[in-house]
Amino acid sequence: MSEPFESYYAVIFTSTQKENIEGYPEMADKMEALARQQSGFLGMHSARNQVGITISYWKNLEAIKNWKQQCDHVIAQQKGRKDWYSWYSVKVCKVEREYEFSL
């Protein structure tokens, strides 16, 4: 019998970038480090190519709301809309089950 699973939330940020993304890699690293300091943060996966996908994991919806409103994150969001992204989508999902495979 498996252990009880405690659900959590995933925020899926999918984006395409403009051609000139000067300063973006540094800001992305800064935001990841800052997110890791936030209460309720559980982890993150990211892949950045033609389409960027970043998934962050959070304990609850309140933690997600607090992260969205964090002052440095708000500045990064504004800069992203102005300078770096040609399109993005954000999805907030409840994770009720998980499993993985590894060799």
Rank of each mutant, 00 (worst) to 15 (best):
S2R: 05
S2A: 07
E3D: 12
F5S: 00
E6Q: 12
Y8K: 06
Y9R: 10
Y9H: 15
A10K: 06
I12Y: 01
I12M: 07
I12W: 00
F13E: 03
F13Y: 08
S15H: 05
T16S: 09
T16H: 14
T16V: 10
Q17T: 15
Q17Y: 15
Q17P: 04
N20P: 00
I21E: 02
E22T: 15
E22A: 12
E22L: 08
G23M: 09
G23D: 02
G23W: 02
Y24A: 13
M27D: 07
M27W: 04
M27C: 08
A28L: 04
A28I: 05
A28F: 03
D29S: 15
D29L: 13
K30C: 04
M31H: 05
E32P: 00
A33D: 06
A33E: 03
L34C: 04
L34D: 09
A35K: 01
R36L: 01
R36H: 00
Q38T: 05
Q38K: 06
Q38A: 04
S39H: 04
G40Y: 00
G40D: 01
F41L: 00
L42H: 03
G43F: 01
M44I: 14
S46F: 08
A47V: 11
A47T: 14
A47E: 15
A47K: 14
N49T: 10
G52H: 08
G52W: 00
G52N: 04
I53W: 06
T54C: 02
T54L: 01
I55E: 07
S56P: 07
S56C: 07
Y57I: 01
Y57W: 06
K59D: 10
N60W: 04
N60S: 03
L61Y: 03
K65Y: 11
K65I: 08
N66V: 02
W67C: 13
W67E: 13
W67K: 10
W67Y: 13
K68T: 07
K68E: 15
Q69G: 05
Q69M: 14
D72M: 00
D72Q: 05
H73L: 02
H73K: 01
H73A: 04
V74T: 09
V74D: 07
V74W: 02
Q77G: 05
Q77N: 02
K79G: 01
G80F: 13
R81M: 15
R81I: 10
K82H: 07
K82N: 11
D83R: 08
D83P: 05
D83F: 14
S86T: 06
S86W: 02
W87D: 09
Y88R: 10
Y88E: 12
S89A: 06
K91S: 14
V92P: 09
V92M: 14
C93R: 10
K94H: 02
K94W: 01
E96C: 11
E96W: 06
E96F: 14
R97S: 14
E98K: 11
Y99I: 01
Y99G: 07
E100F: 11
E100S: 08
E100Y: 13
F101W: 09
F101M: 12
F101N: 09
L103Q: 10
